[in-house]
C-alpha cells in the first residue's frame, strides 16, 4: 500500500534536515526538489535526509536521492541519510550511493560527528 509522501524542512546548528514521511517515489520529485532548495538556502554544511523508518523507496525515489547527493557534492555540502531499514541500506549500497553519502542511525549521530 503506497503511503503518501509528506516533507518537512528545518535547520538547527549547521544541519539542514529534510524529513520524509511516507514512501519516496517519482511523484515526490517536485516536493523533494523544493525542500532541497529550501535546505540549501540555510547554507548549512550538512544536509540530513531523514526517513521515518517505514518508508518504501523505489528506483525512482532512489534516483531522486542520487540527484540530491550529487548536487550537494558539487556544492561541497555533505548529505547524511537516517531512518532507512536494513533492506534499503542494502539497496543504497548496491547502487553505489554509500560511496557518496553516510547512512546513520539517527539525527543525534550526525550532530556528534
Amino acid at each position: 500500500m503506497h503511503r503518501e509522501c509528506k516533507i518537512n524542512v528545518h535547520e538547527d546548528n549547521d544541519l539542514a534536515t529534510i524529513e520524509v514521511l511516507g514512501d519516496l517515489t517519482a511523484s515526490a520529485e517536485k516536493a523533494i526538489g523544493t525542500a532541497y532548495q529550501k535546505a540549501c538556502g540555510y547554507n548549512a554544511k550538512n544536509i540530513l535526509l531523514k526517513f521515518d523508518g517505514k518508508s518504501r523507496i523505489n528506483s525512482a525515489g532512489i534516483a531522486i536521492v542520487i540527484n540530491m547527493v550529487i548536487e550537494s557534492q558539487e556544492k561541497g555540502c555533505k548529505v547524511f541519510i537516517a531512518g532507512v531499514s536494513k533492506h534499503f541500506r542494502k539497496i543504497f549500497e548496491l547502487v553505489g550511493l554509500t560511496k557518496y553519502t553516510t547512512i546513520v542511525d539517527s539525527e543525534e549521530e550526525v550532530r556528534k560527528l
Binding site: 517519482a26 528506483s59 525512482a60 532512489i62 534516483a63 531522486i64 542520487i66 540527484n67 550529487i70 547502487v95
Partner: peptide, 14 residues
Amino acid sequence: EASLLYIIGVFGLR
C-alpha cells in the same frame, strides 16, 4: 521523464 528516473535509480547513475 519517468523512465529516466527509474533507470538512474536501478543502476545508480550520475
